[in-house]
Every structure is written in structure tokens, then in C-alpha cells.
Amino acid sequence: MDSRDKIDRREFIRAAAVLAAGGGAWMAARPDAEGMVWQIDPAKCIQCGRCATNCVLNPSAVKCVHTYEICGYCDLCSGYLQPGAKARDTGAENELCPVGALKRKFIEEPFYEYTVDEERCFGCAKCVKGCGQFGNGSLHLQIKRDLCVNCNECSIARNCPSDAIRRVPARRGYLFKQWVSGEESEG
């Protein structure tokens, strides 16, 4: 056996160890079928803004989601426009979202559709609050299952002022708002 062999073997073992450790971490982070994951209960969230700043990830694993059945497709969308906006258009000075993640598209007079650009959204809940306080509350926050690393103790849950984040079964990892009851429902 020459020294090259030894190095290869050493590297192989090291790589295997790294893989094992990484895999272990990934397995720990990845919710298995029977596991539990963290999720936001939209009925309890008071849109304090901490979901944007308290997640261990940057940007946060929390994003705004939209239940279209509840949305009024309003022209004067209080989730999209600044409270005192002078014009109802896509001008940046009128937009409520600090990063322009909420998009507005004309459908037909007087209806507009609003979609969330998930890459930009960092879960600040500003639009959620506007929508809930003046509109139908169709915008809400959810922890995205594909982004969240499922910390043992969710760093947002620890600081959430309304205990809105709880464990839910991984198989049904969302608590989307639904139209039927006007309440959230596990999705």
C-alpha cells in the first residue's frame, strides 16, 4: 500500500465522517413522516414583526402567503398600499412592503390580484397587518417547510409575544387560512 493509497483512504474516511455528520444534521433538521415541525397559527399572530428578525436564517424562513378565496381583489388594498397613499398604483412611494415583495396585477375593473414574491419576502408581516386590519385577512404568515431547518427550539417561537408558533405534525406542516370557516385550517 503506498502513501497515495493511505491519503485516499484517509480522505475517504474523512469524507464519510463529514457525510455522516452532515447527514445526521440533515436528518435531525428534516422532519420525518412522524415528526413535528414549527408552524404559525394565523389566528394567534399579532404581526409584531419579530418573524423577520428572530429566525436563525437570514432571510427568515417565514414568508407571507395568500389565500385567494378570502381575498377581495381590492383596488384599494390595505396590504399593498401605504395607509395614506395618495395614488392607487404600483409607485414605490405608495407600496407598503419595504422590499416590494407584494405584486399587484390588474384583472378587470375594479379587481386586482396580489401575489407574493417569496424570494424577496422576509416575513415582516407589515402587509399581513394592513390586510387584516382593513381587509379580509387573506394575507398571512407561514414558516416555509422547504426553508425552515426545524430548530429544536424555534428562535422565533421563543420570542413570539402571542405564542402563535406551535408544533404541528410534519405530514400536515402548514396552518393556511381557509375560506370555509374563516378560520385557519391545517393544510
Binding site: Q47, G49, C124, A125, K129
Partner: peptide
């Protein structure tokens, strides 16, 4: 970090 004023509605 607490969310700053720009993030509050």
C-alpha cells in the same frame, strides 16, 4: 433584534 420602525405597520 427588535423590528425597527420601517417594519412596523
Amino acid at each position: 433584534r427588535e423590528p425597527g420602525p420601517a417594519l412596523l405597520y
